[in-house]
Design a protein around this nucleic acid. Structure first.
Lengths: 104, 104
DNA sequence: GGTTCTAGAACC
DNA sequence: GGTTCTAGAACC
């Protein structure tokens, strides 16, 4: 091959699955912190407004607006990504552990 | 026994499970037809307003307001009650088959 | 018997 | 790899 990779990595996602990358972006976006945000300790994120999360946030990242589908995917990566772990839920507050990927 | 049952049946639910009785009542109530109502053919019922269904209707019948928990229970009775059968769902319209109990 | 969390399986 | 539907299992 003539051109070799010289460390240039456009869109370096560290091989992270699309679902994981999207979820990280979605949670990290400060514009939507009233809907979903990082939790305090324990590498968690909180869905503060499940209705807005389902109706507006999910369809902007995924091809659906079903909270159950999101949870199903999350549970998949809970398994394959040691850093992710489901915790608990209440009537209106869903809490999932999800640590930020380590850069560097 | 001195007193025999003479056909008097206060609260005759035909031995139907509480979940099934509650769901039937919830769907049948005309006051909430904008939220959930009986479907046209095929013994179905439609959750027209999932948000209102979860936030207001579910907690008035059950001890939670989680659509997923309702679906989990529904799927249980899909199995044990031949008359119930899950069909499909779309973004905002959940459709489940559920036939009315036959009286008489 | 109910409620929650998670996963299998089918289908896309 | 994503989305949906359903069920197992644990816990209440």
């Amino acid at each position: 091959m003539g051109s070799e990779c010289k460390g240039h990595q456009p869109q370096d996602d560290g091989g992270v699955a699309p679902f994981v990358a999207k979820t990280f972006h979605m949670v990290s976006d400060p514009a939507t912190d009233a809907v979903v945000c990082w939790g305090g300790a324990s590498n968690t994120f909180l869905v503060l407004d499940p209705a807005a999360f389902s109706d507006f946030l999910l369809p902007s990242y995924f091809k659906h607006r079903n909270f159950a589908s999101f949870v199903r995917q999350l549970n998949t990566y809970v398994r394959t990504h040691a850093r992710t772990h489901a915790l608990s839920s209440t009537d209106s507050l869903y809490v999932y552990a999800y640590s930020a990927p380590v850069s560097g």
